[in-house]
Design a protein around this nucleic acid. Structure first.
Length: 178
DNA sequence: TGCTTGATTAACT
DNA sequence: GTTAATCAAGCAC
């Protein structure tokens, strides 16, 4: 996919402002990404740091692959692979702004607000779960880049205990929460 | 085989 | 601000 292949720390900020769209079972939802985090091999905080396993296999796929993992045994979190195949790099999609299918999102989330303001929430609102791990960007999951680049700020990543000073969290300036 | 730790969320007080 | 829910991966034994 155009503009989707490259080092995670370079691609990640460019995902801010991009629209992620899903069509599952005829249900259309879309969110503009406002917060992402980059993870790579040789990165102690990354799932791929300890090497390739059955669980993180899709992190090693080609650019455009979706990596979905179970978080805290409860939630699903979605990543987008943008690196070279076999490198184990991915970008965690942490938050977004609903722009289509809000009622579908509300039904999936079971509430009216806080639909996409967290990685588990964003994945659930878009209907992403373990079934979609390893799928590629294409007919059911699409990413559209904006006309103009968003204003982005880089900060340390959230909820990790290693490499806490690596500023690989990228947040849209208008929605920044530090 | 058992123990600890999460790339979290929601419901509490 | 605190805590339960809930489970798989990773690591020690």
């Amino acid at each position: 996919m155009l503009g989707l292949h490259g080092p995670v720390e370079e691609i990640a900020p460019r995902l801010i402002g991009a629209t992620l769209e899903t069509r599952f079972d005829g249900l259309h939802t879309a969110a503009v990404l406002t917060e992402v985090e980059a993870y790579s091999e040789f990165d102690p905080a990354s799932h791929s740091f300890r090497g390739r396993t059955a669980a993180n296999e899709s992190m090693y796929g080609p650019a455009g692959t979706i990596y979905v993992y179970r978080s805290y045994g409860v939630h699903w979190c979605a990543n987008l692979v943008t690196g070279t195949e076999g490198r184990g790099e991915a970008i965690l999609l942490r938050a977004g702004r609903p722009v289509a299918g809000v009622e579908v999102m509300r039904r999936r989330r079971g509430r009216r607000d806080h639909l996409t303001d967290g990685p588990g929430k964003l994945a659930q609102a878009l209907g992403l779960n373990g079934d979609h791990d390893g799928l590629s960007m294409g007919s059911v999951i699409e990413l559209r880049f904006p006309e103009m680049a968003a204003q982005v700020v880089a900060t340390p990543r959230i909820g990790i205990s290693k490499a806490i000073n690596t500023p690989w969290r990228f947040v849209e300036v208008r929605t920044i929460t530090l």
